[in-house]
Amino acid sequence: MFEARLTQGVLLRKLLDSMKDLVQDANFDCSSTGFALQAMDSSHVSLIHMQLRSDGFDHFRCDRNLSMGVSLNNMAKILKCMGNDDVLTMKAEDQGDSVTFMFESANQERISDFELKLMDIDSEQLGIPDTDYSATVKMPSAEFARICKDLSTIGDTVLIAVTKDGVRFSTTGDIGSANVTVRSHSNVDKPEEQVVIDMQEPVALTFALRYLNSFAKATPLSNQVMISMSKELPVVVQYRIEDMGHISYYLAPKIED
């Protein structure tokens, strides 16, 4: 038996909205540790890893490990039927072929349940090695989303270069070129607006903007985004979900010709 109750049900809807454009079908892995998903996008260029810890839920019960295969698009459609302030409860039997989403309005006057059929999905779990990154940038997630969107009007790829002076996002295209530089700054009153650059050595890598724009769909989940880079390694774009976990996206850099 799996049962998980989330007062802020809207959180799961935001999570689905931040994954469904990249991944069609995936397994949610339920265990006593929590509720997790790891999946590659259809072109196998990027990897999503999201994890919600069991202690972040108001109630969490998972008698035995369970892998729930779902169409993310269909699950997102169901979660769209949830009110913004609803409490969400997910339930699934150990050997069942469906998962139930129950939505309770804050005043308890409306209770609805939606059942989603599960699918068998073959997926290999990848091990992600711990890495000491050359540079890690923490910045407002909305600023990162804006930069990726703005640069997409000019080019298809972005060069992200971290130096001690700041982080520069550059692109070129048929109509011209663009650069946005963000400098580190702290703001005691508004920590969500600060930019923190932790650099061991300068690093510059090129990425497809299409993917970064998909990752930025996670912006509503967190005020800040953390971008970690090392030479010739995938970038990690991580959104921390307060008191619960994170969603992290891995994207391989473009190879120079």
Partner: peptide, 14 residues
């Protein structure tokens, strides 16, 4: 995808 290694090649299969 052109100019890009598959992401799985950076990780190991569990």
């Amino acid at each position: 995808l052109k100019g890009q290694r598959p992401i799985s090649s950076f990780f190991f299969v569990k």
